[in-house]
Design a protein around this nucleic acid. Sequence first.
DNA 1: GTTGGTATGGTGTATATACACTTCAATGAG
DNA 2: CTCATTGAAGTGTATATACACCATACCAAC
Lengths: 146, 146
Amino acid sequence: MSDERDWLAMQNCLCFNIRRSSRAVTQYYENELRRHGLRPTQTPILSLLAAKPEMGMAEVSEWLGMDRTTLVRNLRPLQREGLVQMTGAGRGKRVVLSITPAGRAALAKLLPDWRIAQSRAVAVLGPERWAALLGDLERVAASLQD
Amino acid sequence: MSDERDWLAMQNCLCFNIRRSSRAVTQYYENELRRHGLRPTQTPILSLLAAKPEMGMAEVSEWLGMDRTTLVRNLRPLQREGLVQMTGAGRGKRVVLSITPAGRAALAKLLPDWRIAQSRAVAVLGPERWAALLGDLERVAASLQD
DNA sequence: GTTGGTATGGTGTATATACACTTCAATGAG
DNA sequence: CTCATTGAAGTGTATATACACCATACCAAC
């Protein structure tokens, strides 16, 4: 059947595969870190803000490879929980994002468990193959962004 | 600074990286296939239903590596557009999912453009490295599902 | 100073994702 | 036959994602 052949082809679709793996990996990390109250999307935001202060929305979204308008929504829970602060808010006005002491505390509390989860993930493939995987992912993503 | 070191570590986070790449790849495929009116999540559903008839919700969600309740929502646009049919619907009752003639037509119309998009994606790494990437992704996802 | 363009953020809308919980049907133990 | 168990499907809620569009501020040319 042609349909069966099409389905076999679709099983090699990068988009399908990366989305499926992303779901599985996300659920794994989320399970490991759920008790800290931070979702997989929020941790990188906090970590970036801790390292690089005084950034605006567009800059942060660039660093995270995330649409600017997506970042706007993703910041809301963090702001509501008092982990991130926005100064100079308002339409048109430049906004400066910064992590709060509570945000730093939450991040510090989470990091050890993140390291454990990450180690288990790295162990699946080993460090070399792991590095190759991340490199290839980045290369594909960068090349297709045109 | 410890914060700077933490951020460097976080940049090796599988979860962060795979989610970021997933966003980029999804946008690429979505752009290439947008004119067909099918989103990246919907195409694999249609393709699977075309190849394997008479499946229930749980079975389909298993094949796609997608939460069952996510599939329920993802089917709604497809059903609304008349591309997928659900017979025996109702709580408790088993549902049989099937692709409609309109669904087959939409899939057939899209496939050539999907092949083009896929070729360009494969060309970034070459077929061997490509196969290794998909294999590693699957292996990581499978290993972490415990 | 007015005006027009650019930079910067926010909103409306629609889909995607999944956990906790609910509803219903079928079935098997008694 | 009745009821508890199991299995299947749907809902409530919250977050994630991004396109199209909107609103404001800032700055430069005049």
